[in-house]
Design a protein around this nucleic acid. Sequence first.
DNA 1: AAATCACTCAACCGCCCATAT
DNA 2: AATATGGGCGGTTGAGTGATT
Length: 352
Amino acid sequence: MGRPPCCEKVGLKKGPWTPEEDRKLLAYIEQYGHGSWRALPAKAGLKRCGKSCRLRWTNYLRPDIRRGKFSLQEEQTIIQLHALLGNRWSVIASHLPKRTDNEIKNHWNTHLKKRLTKMGIDPVTHKPKTHALGPDQLKDAANLSHMAQWEGARLEAEARLVRESKLQVLNPFKTQPGSSASAQLVYEPTTIAPLLHPPLQPLCLDVLTAWQGSWLKAPKYNAYSASTFSSASSIDFLAPTSNFSKKDEAMIMKAGADFGIPNNFPDVQGMAYSTDDDSLATGNESILLPNFMEAGLGEILFDDSNQLYPSITGANSGDVPASCCGDIEENKNYWNNILNLVNGLPSGSPVF
DNA sequence: AAATCACTCAACCGCCCATAT
DNA sequence: AATATGGGCGGTTGAGTGATT
């Protein structure tokens, strides 16, 4: 049996919304909340499809959205999240407060994609179009790609949690229209902001952050720095992760598996945490450290004898193996940018 | 001034997924 | 377990508008 239409299409208005329609929709939602979108148009006196109402509300009328020109910071964030997540606009939007997925998608299609193309960068792969990788670079790129996939899965799962928490908060009254007790604005920025805060807080790309720490501090792969995982970022990360749905888990596990993480390894849904040799006596034993070698990062971070590349430890770059130069160096800069932007670090902070 | 082109973005469409029954 | 339903997402369209000829 085919899926029935979302509403009776006969007699319904389509096309641009009039100010009068906006006023009706806004007034209704402010008073009663949207409730069932399917039932809303009739109750609000609109000759529109419920879906159309939902779209108008979420993309235009909602009081907590910002319209207008995208800032440079926002554009960079979009580009770099797109590199991680692809066309997952809703996930990207969840990391850009006050912007809608539709707006971001439009901006990408009309501005950013063209700009990248003009710069000679493939907007799909985010790599230079004349990219010719040798075997070593391909291996490095593959590792970076796996990292991106892994982190992307996590960001997507986080975004899902953001959405779910929004739903719980923003639609608290399943009361019927007409109940004066429910007469309040659904989206109240001042009240929802703190609730949005926790999911937005762990914006850090944990894998990259971890990577950063090991570049900066570790002389050997198994000697991680406590600063790699500040207690805040670790805990912030673990909290929402532990609430991932089965689907999220499956997605992260898949990404983890692609990343080379054994199925029986992760202690925390796909993240390769280990409590044995990689734990640090930091005075805070609850801080678990990622096992990079298990996660496959060792191939990027360290040479065959588990020594950090000289470029990583700050030694003369002339000693860097050939495979570590060139494209992988570009990738490092690229990921540096992502990390800096998403973490809000001062630009230019060296990571690699 | 009129015609054409290029661009933007609000809105629609079809599909997928989660949930209720 | 199967089906119905609603909500959400990403791709696409087309009306509106400004620039160019």
